[in-house]
């Protein structure tokens, strides 16, 4: 497959545009901290709306699921050096310790294997240091091919319906 994204500066721009187009990730305020062809780090700021446990004020596990799904999805762009439609096949999150409330969350993930049809990703969520993870995630993504080709297909079939 051709490498459409030539360098890490372009990768950074493309990944930021990709993230900006995900309404729910934008609502949670996620931003890309660091990205290269082998990994990405996404930040999620603290806000009162993400609390899951009203007794302790700890973040809801669903927020971590969303953070990891987003970061793993973005890291498929790193692996492919292209923006492909890659829906999540499955995701597994292990919660290793209780997050500290009031502090931002980070996810650092890597694509550890890419095949013709699948991107395998893994990573951790952390707060103080990547070496002290609060959660570990493994996600599998299906490659549907370049986004542009899919859009073209869709518009073709729409035209077909209309005519």
């Amino acid at each position: 497959m051709s490498r459409i994204i030539p360098d890490e500066q372009v990768l950074d721009t493309v990944a930021k545009q990709f993230l900006a187009a995900l309404p729910h990730s934008v609502k949670l305020g996620m931003t890309i901290m660091e990205i290269d062809f082998s990994s990405v780090t996404v930040q999620l700021p603290w806000s009162e709306q993400i609390v899951g446990n009203p007794e302790t004020g700890v973040v809801h596990s669903g927020v971590l699921t969303t953070l990891m799904d987003t970061a793993c999805g973005i890291c498929s762009i790193c692996a492919l050096a292209n923006v492909e439609a890659c829906p999540t096949l499955d995701l597994r999150i292990d919660h290793m310790k209780v997050p500290v409330s009031g502090k931002p969350l980070y996810a650092t993930v890597e694509p550890y294997r890419v095949t013709k049809s699948i991107v395998f990703t893994r990573g951790t969520a952390w707060q103080e240091s990547p070496d002290d993870p609060i959660a570990h995630a493994v996600g599998t993504f299906m490659r549907l091919g370049p986004l542009a080709a899919i859009k073209k297909d869709k518009s073709k079939s729409k035209q077909g319906e209309e005519s």
Partner: peptide, 12 residues
Amino acid sequence: LHGGVIGGFMET
């Protein structure tokens, strides 16, 4: 829908 929201909904 965001896959993470589907997950968060199911966890909730």
